[in-house]
Structures are given as structure tokens and as C-alpha cells.
Design a protein around this nucleic acid. Structure first.
Length: 321
DNA sequence: GGTCGTCAAGGGGTG
DNA sequence: CACCCCTTGACGACC
């Protein structure tokens, strides 16, 4: 028997006007003549993003959803080079604490997936520098919420740069340049066109990083179709982690745009996965990456009811026998 | 009130 | 090297 919790990404389609990713671009920032006023606007937007994050978490709690990926755009321009000194933490400590308190009280799992320009295996020094800077921002936000940053940030391996094997080795080289406290935050996901799960497993086992298995990505890009033969190794990468094994589930938009995400998760595709792994772990957290966000989660829970060996626990978790 | 181009940031592919 | 594509959501200019 395996206990499964579902989560979703960044925004709710059920809570009205609750965007946690409102933003301000550097162009707009520069348009405001009074720099103080511009900073105040930035702070207002940031606090609104945090407030909406809390509203979404309350909505999650009301529907027994314990798993949620926060947006990485909570603090616009936080890592932008050349912005006048802005102590963004000072303006948001209270909001962060409030979120953290709620998360702890409801025993939720929250994490981040920094954007695609956060990558560790880049040959460009500047890119690596920005990567570390952005990860430090994530660490501060988590610490502000009193959440242990360990294994809270999902990343991809990065680019191929013409030589996949070399690119993997460069990941290892660059990894050694990253502060341990930042390394500890990271978990790695197989992607849909460059690095399949065996590449990812190679790095994860070598460097002691948990592997987030993305089933959709695997179907889109693999050398060896049979992931299930290696599943125990994937599970093993989580043994040093305080958190349960985590995976990503989404469905192709259509045959032609296979890599694009569909509105909802195909329940049969999800069951194919679950039937392979049931019993192999006590618990697994599944992050739904569908266009319809929490609506897709609710629909999936509904679709799961038809299976006899699924026992619904509450609104967003179940047992599979 | 709806539509569409733009946005700080990377990488891949094409010609 | 130049250019466009991917991808995500939000914003804001414009009609």
C-alpha cells in the first residue's frame, strides 16, 4: 500500500484575483521618476504576492491539499543587477513568517522550481553566478518562513552545449563551486529533450541529490523506455532526505505537441505509473503540472474514484493497494 | 472590455 | 552570427 498526496503549481483557478506572480519589469521600474516611489511599488507588489500565496494555501487547506509549489516570482527584480540597493527582506519578514506559521500548522509540503535560466552546468561564469544568486534568494525566502531549505528547489541539469557527456561532467565540476548550504536545497529532474532519467540518475547517485522523476518528460525523451527497472534506484536517492519521494505528473497536449502540457492529467496515464510503483514506497508526493492547476487536481481525484484498488483518504490524497 | 506585443534572465535549432 | 522558437503569466498600450 502506498499513500499518495497530490499537489499543484503556483496559482489557483478557484480563488479569484489571487495571482502570486504579479510583477514589475525593469522598464516599468525605470519609467517611474521618483526612485523611492518605484521601490515602494515593488514592495507593494511583493507583499501582495505573499498575501495571495497565503490565500492560496488557505484554499488548499480547506480542500485538504498539503502539497504546493510556490511561484519563483514572488519578489520581482530581486536578483536584477544594477537595481539600486533594495533590502527586500526587510519589507516582507512579517508576511514570510505568517506563511511559514500556516504551513507548519497544516503540515504542508511547499517547494520551488526556479526558472529555466537557473542552471548549474553552464560554461558561462556569469550564468553560474546568477544561478547562485537566485538560489540564495530562494533560501532566504524559505528561512524567512522558518522552513528547512533542504531539498526544496527542483532544477533541471541544464544545457547540452553540443556534448552531452561533457555537459554532465561540467555539472559535477560546477557543483563543487556551489556553497554546501545551496547544494542542500537542490533536487534534480529529468527533462524532455536533453537529459533523460538515466543521465539524471548518474548525477544524483554520484552527488547525493534526490531525483524527481517526471513521467511525462520520460515518455517524451528516453534512451531506455523501461524506467521501472531503475525505480528502486530513484527511490534510493531520497534516502538521505527528510521529505517523501516526489514526482511530477502531466499529460501531453496532443500527439503532435507531445511535450506541451495538457489542461488536465490523463488518469489512465497516471494509473500506469502508480500501478508500477505501488508498494515500493510508503508515501509519494505527486506534483500535477497541468494548465488547469487546482481544477486539474480536483478532476483527477474525481477520475480516480472509478478504481477499486484506490481508497480516497480526503480531498487530495489517497491510498493505492 | 478584449486583443496583442512585450518582458531581465538561457538554450536549441536553422540558415 | 542573426534570428526565431520554446514557455509562462502578467502587464499595459491600444482600439
Amino acid at each position: 500500500m502506498t499513500f499518495v498526496r497530490l499537489g499543484y503549481v503556483a496559482m489557483s483557478l478557484k480563488v479569484p484575483n489571487s495571482s502570486p506572480s504579479q510583477t514589475m519589469t525593469i522598464k516599468n521600474f525605470s519609467k517611474i521618476e521618483n526612485e523611492n516611489a518605484a521601490i515602494l511599488k515593488l514592495e507593494r507588489i511583493t507583499r501582495s504576492n505573499l498575501h495571495n500565496t497565503l490565500r492560496i494555501l488557505r484554499h488548499n487547506a480547506a480542500h485538504d491539499i498539503q502539497f504546493y509549489r510556490m511561484t519563483s516570482r514572488l519578489v520581482p527584480l530581486a536578483t536584477f543587477e544594477g537595481l539600486p540597493d533594495w533590502d527586500y527582506m526587510a519589507a516582507i519578514v512579517d508576511s514570510l513568517e505568517e506563511i511559514g506559521k500556516f504551513v507548519a500548522e497544516k503540515e504542508m509540503r511547499v517547494d520551488f522550481h526556479p526558472d529555466h535560466f537557473v542552471l548549474i552546468n553552464s560554461p558561462k561564469n556569469e550564468v553560474l553566478k546568477m544561478t547562485v544568486k537566485t538560489l540564495i534568494l530562494h533560501k532566504r525566502l524559505l528561512e524567512g518562513m522558518n522552513i528547512d531549505p533542504k531539498h526544496r528547489c527542483v532544477l533541471h541539469i541544464g544545457g547540452v552545449y553540443g556534448d552531452r557527456v561533457l555537459a554532465l561532467e561540467r555539472f559535477i565540476q560546477n557543483w563543487m563551486l556551489i556553497p554546501t548550504s545551496i547544494q542542500n536545497m537542490i533536487i534534480l529532474e529529468n527533462d524532455d529533450k536533453s537529459f533523460h532519467f538515466e543521465d539524471t540518475l548518474y548525477l544524483c547517485e554520484k552527488l547525493g541529490i534526490p531525483l524527481v522523476f517526471d513521467y511525462h518528460h520520460h515518455l517524451a525523451h528516453h534512451e531506455n523506455k523501461h524506467w521501472e527497472a531503475q525505480w528502486d534506484r530513484i527511490v534510493n536517492t531520497w534516502s538521505p532526505s527528510p521529505l517523501p519521494v516526489k514526482m511530477h505528473i502531466s499529460s501531453p497536449k496532443n500527439e503532435k505537441q507531445f511535450r506541451a502540457h495538457s489542461d488536465f492529467v490523463d488518469v489512465e496515464m497516471f494509473m500506469d505509473f502508480l500501478n508500477e510503483i505501488k508498494g515500493s514506497v510508503d508515501q509519494i508526493d505527486c506534483m500535477i503540472e497541468a494548465k488547469r492547476k487546482d481544477e486539474a487536481l480536483f478532476k483527477l481525484m474525481k477520475d480516480l474514484k472509478q478504481y477499486d484498488h484506490i481508497e480516497i483518504n480526503d480531498g487530495a490524497s489517497f491510498y493505492i493497494k
